[in-house]
C-alpha cells in the first residue's frame, strides 16, 4: 500500500451501551504511513474506539479497512494471569503456529523490539513491565502488520522505558511505513510523533495536524485544565 493511500475509513461510528452513548457519529480517515494520535479526557471513548476498529465490540456505522490490511494491536493492559505456566516463547509460538507464520519470524520480531533470547525463555510472570510491553509489541508485529493500533502503550512504564517504546514505535513507522493509530494521554508524545490528531470529547470530534489541534485553547477546552506540555525541537522528530 503506497503512502498517502487511504487505509482506514470510518463513517458515522456510534458506540452505545444501553442508553449510554459513548461515541456518536464519529467519522475520520487514516492514510497509509500516518501516525494518527487519538486524544481526549478519561471516558471519552478512546479505548472503545480502538476496540470498535478491531471489531471487538458492537457498534453502528461503517468501518472500512483497505483490502490487504494486516492489523497488529497492543492493548493498554492485559489482565493475564501472571502465574500461567507459559514462557514468553510459548505465547509468541502460539500465534506463529495459529497463523502458520515462518518460525524464523520469532527471532526477527524479538530483535526488532530488543528482547534478548534469554527473555524469550522466561516465564510470563517473571517479565518486568517494560519487557512485558515489548513482548506485547513483538506479538503485534508477528505477521508483518501494516497497521498498528496502540492503546497507551507506556501507561505503566518509567520514563526511560517509555522513551524506548516510543522510539521503537517511531522507527517502525518510519522504516516500515506502517500506519500507527495511537491512544495517548501524553500530549508531548503526541506532539512529537503524531502526523495527525483525532480528539474525542463530549462535543464534536475534531481532527487535524498537531500544530492545528494542540493549541492551548483547544486543550483547555478538551481537558478542562490548562495544558502542561513542552514542545520538542522539530529536529527531534528524526
Amino acid at each position: 500500500m503506497a503512502p498517502g493511500e487511504s487505509i482506514l475509513s470510518v463513517h458515522n461510528l456510534t458506540i452505545a451501551f444501553g442508553r449510554h452513548t459513548i461515541l456518536e457519529n464519529v467519522s475520520f480517515e487514516a492514510q497509509a504511513g500516518d501516525c494518527l494520535a487519538v486524544i481526549g479526557p478519561n471516558g471519552a471513548g478512546k479505548t472503545l474506539l480502538l476496540k470498535a476498529l478491531l471489531h471487538l465490540i458492537p457498534c453502528r456505522g461503517e468501518i472500512r479497512w483497505a483490502p490487504g490490511t494486516r492489523i497488529g494491536y497492543v492493548p493498554q493492559k492485559v489482565a493475564a494471569d501472571r502465574q500461567l505456566p507459559l514462557r514468553l516463547q510459548d505465547f509468541l509460538d502460539a500465534k506463529i503456529a495459529f497463523q502458520k507464520l515462518p518460525p524464523a519470524d520469532l527471532n526477527r520480531v524479538a530483535s526488532a523490539v530488543g528482547l534478548a533470547p534469554e527473555i524469550l525463555d522466561a516465564g510470563i510472570g517473571l517479565l518486568s513491565g517494560g519487557q512485558f510491553q515489548k513482548a506485547l509489541i513483538a506479538f503485534a508485529l508477528l505477521g508483518e502488520p501494516n497497521a498498528l493500533l496502540f492503546d497507551e502503550p507506556t501507561a505503566s512504564l518509567d520514563e526511560l522505558a517509555e522513551e524506548n517504546i516510543y522510539e521503537l514505535l517511531h522507527s517502525l513507522q518510519r522504516d516500515r511505513g506502517m500506519t500507527v493509530i495511537l491512544v495517548s494521554h501524553d500530549i508531548s508524545v503526541v506532539y512529537r510523533y503524531a502526523s495527525r490528531v483525532l480528539c474525542l470529547s463530549k462535543g464534536t470530534p475534531c481532527m487535524g495536524a498537531p500544530r492545528e489541534i494542540l493549541t492551548p485553547a483547544m486543550l483547555q477546552d478538551l481537558y478542562g485544565t490548562p495544558p502542561r506540555f513542552y514542545r520538542h525541537h522539530p529536529a527531534e522528530r528524526g
Partner: peptide, 12 residues
C-alpha cells in the same frame, strides 16, 4: 495454540 492465546487474553 488457540487455547493458549485465549487463556492469555481473549481480546488478543
Amino acid at each position: 495454540e488457540r487455547l493458549a492465546l485465549e487463556i492469555f487474553s481473549p481480546e488478543l
